[in-house]
């Protein structure tokens, strides 16, 4: 995984709540055996509507997405995280994420930043005109207007993101403990 320390640039001010995984990437696009190429199909139902943020050239290739509550709810499909990554999104900011999506995002080097709704509202407002910065080092989101919002992140996840670490390799370092567990429980 590529290490990520900061993400800076325009942010899609999507804003809506309960953006489910079917909206992020429709089931018709899950019939792939690879991870790449899903970006063009992301948010298809939203893209079809008039005046949406994904059609606005100002946000083309934006590395950040700002959404409402419960982002990524629904299915466990990691294709949602792959599609975002394939679109060039490196960080998503929302008041809350579904548990499974948050895990999938992190495993693909996608930074999921949780901030309270009023802060997200402020960022949505700024994002319409200006870039946003997400800094894992200082754990802050900043705007060109001197806003500085601190966020919390699981230390292990942060370390993996910043180091670009492979979680399986880390776990395999505990192989002896897994062997011992299997012996102890007769599994």
């Amino acid at each position: 995984m590529t290490p990520v320390r900061t993400v800076h640039g325009r942010a899609y001010p999507l804003g809506r709540a309960n953006v489910d995984t079917d909206v992020i990437i429709g089931a018709a696009h899950l019939k792939t055996t690879g991870r790449a190429g899903l970006g063009v199909h992301a948010f298809e139902t939203i893209r079809r509507g008039p005046g949406n943020v994904f059609a606005d050239p100002a946000f083309a290739g934006a590395p950040i997405l700002i959404a409402g509550d419960n982002f990524g709810c629904g299915s466990s499909r990691e294709h949602a995280a792959w599609a975002l990554a394939d679109m060039g999104v490196q960080a998503v900011i929302a008041p809350s994420f579904s548990d499974i999506f948050a895990g999938n995002a992190f495993k693909n080097g996608l930074v999921a930043v949780v901030l309270p709704q009023p802060v997200v509202d402020r960022l949505l407002e700024v994002a319409r005109e200006q870039p946003i910065g997400v800094d894992l080092e200082t754990m802050t989101v900043t705007t060109p207007f001197q806003d500085r919002f601190a966020f919390a992140m699981d230390p292990f996840r942060r370390e993996c993101l910043m180091g670009g670490l492979d979680e399986i390799a880390l776990t395999l370092a505990s192989a002896a403990a897994i062997d011992a567990y299997e012996r102890r429980t007769g599994t």
Partner: peptide
């Protein structure tokens, strides 16, 4: 439920 990275 788990994602594909977790499946792996």
């Amino acid at each position: 439920g788990i994602g594909t990275s977790e499946v792996e």
